[in-house]
């Protein structure tokens, strides 16, 4: 039995669609018997339609940007006024074979993404496998005999978690040092700024000082000066860095008896990579 775990689509707020290659992979009817949406995936008509085509057996748990109730379409509303709106639960449990699978979106797990907290939740729900989302990073590990799976974001949507802090690489240095050499006039300023740059890691070092608003008036003019000319494309900014370094990913769980074979699908540089992890309940 195949269970598809999708999470954090964030369509249309943060992303437009799944990668086309993912869609092609998933567009096989009657193969996947159940879909678990682990949060932030209920605001797109097209996406829900797509998921519904994969399987109409869908388990949804609420993510921070989902509404408390299942969304409806205008047509539904007009045709069926009496139907009560279905609440989206925080947690949900799927029983499959000898395994119980818990679902949660992860936004009510404190501290966020903490393995021990997740373990406590798995214990509370009495499940063998815990699917969770909310971090946009695909993860799978075994802890205390339980299996923890985070399918990541299926669209690679923008993520507000702490981004990985990068150091500027040496290769950049060689190129850019030619572009800019500090001039002697700015020597005094230079010292000041160096003081600032050593404090990069310290909180608050970027807090703008009072009176910056006044300086800003002059700034537009001063920008014209040659030494202040600066092209932003010198800076290497990849989309994935801006989005929080996450690649689109999803997970497929093949459950047979007390064994779960997990397939992790990752979309990197236009290609789909697949990893396999096997979990067996003791």
């Amino acid at each position: 039995m195949l269970l598809l775990a999708l999470s954090d689509a964030h369509i249309p707020d943060r992303a437009t669609d799944l990668p086309v290659k993912f869609k092609k992979l998933l567009s096989v009817p009657d193969k996947i018997s159940q879909v678990a949406l682990l949060g932030n995936s209920t605001k797109s008509y097209d996406f829900l339609k797509f998921v519904n085509q994969i399987s109409n057996n869908i388990t949804i748990v609420r993510g921070e940007f989902d509404n408390g109730h299942l969304p409806s379409t205008k047509k539904d509303k007009a045709s069926d006024n009496s139907r009560p709106m279905e609440e989206i639960p925080m947690n949900s449990i799927i029983r499959q074979g000898a395994l119980k699978i818990g679902c949660c979106s992860g936004y009510t797990v404190v501290p966020k993404n903490d393995p021990l907290s997740l373990l406590a939740l798995a214990r509370q729900l009495d499940v063998d496998i815990l699917l969770w989302g909310g971090t946009h990073n695909v993860e799978a590990y075994t802890l205390e005999g339980k299996f923890f799976v985070n399918p990541g974001s299926c669209t690679g949507a923008f993520n507000t978690d702490w981004p990985i802090v990068f150091d500027v690489e040496d290769s950049d240095e060689a190129v850019t040092s030619e572009v800019d050499k500090p001039t002697k006039e700015n020597q005094s300023e230079d010292d000041d700024a160096k003081g600032g740059s050593t404090g990069t890691e310290q909180p608050g070092s970027y807090t703008p000082k009072e009176g910056t608003a006044g300086e800003r008036e002059n700034e537009n003019e001063s920008n014209v000066k040659p030494e202040n000319q600066f092209k932003e494309d010198e800076v290497d900014m990849s989309d994935s860095d801006i989005n929080g370094s996450n690649s689109p990913s999803f997970c497929l769980l093949d459950i047979q008896g007390n064994t779960c074979t997990l397939y992790i699908y990752l979309y990197v540089n236009g290609e789909v990579k697949v990893d396999k992890v096997v979990y067996e309940k003791e």
Binding site: E189, G196, A213, F230, V235
Partner: peptide, 23 residues
Amino acid sequence: RMIQEYLLKKRPDNKTLLSHYSN
């Protein structure tokens, strides 16, 4: 933010630019 970090590393002398971006 990335531009700021870049500027801090590469052109720490240029205060105008830095304050421009922080604004």
